[in-house]
Amino acid sequence: MSVDLEHYLMVGAILFAIGLYLALAKRNFVGVLMGIELMFNAANLTLIAFSRFVESESPIDGHVFVVFVVTVAAAEAAVALAIAVLLYRVRDTVDVDKANLLKW
């Protein structure tokens, strides 16, 4: 019983699906953000799986992509949480449904 690319891709797909569900269904803005982080993780996992299994002349690129994704995800998380705090300060709630006015 050996482990090969399809196993990792399946784990990545399921993780991505859970992240998508979180992003779509959660009422709390921070919950949505957790979903986005999960989706980033799923993408990273598939990148590393490809760089490990698939034929390519410079397999290390997968790792470099993941490093870039991690840094950008960190920056994005910081800005998103700043928005969450600002939203809370202005509208006293972080409920995604209630923030439907474009200008208040």
């Binding site: 959660k26 998380a77 910081a78 949480l81 969450a84 705090v85 409920d95």
Partner: peptide, 21 residues
């Protein structure tokens, strides 16, 4: 970061509820 976001929004209710969608 996520923990700080949760802590800095105290009255926003800590439930993990879902929207109607």
């Amino acid at each position: 970061l996520v923990i700080f976001a949760i802590v800095l929004t105290p009255q926003a209710g800590r439930d993990n509820a879902e929207t109607s969608m």
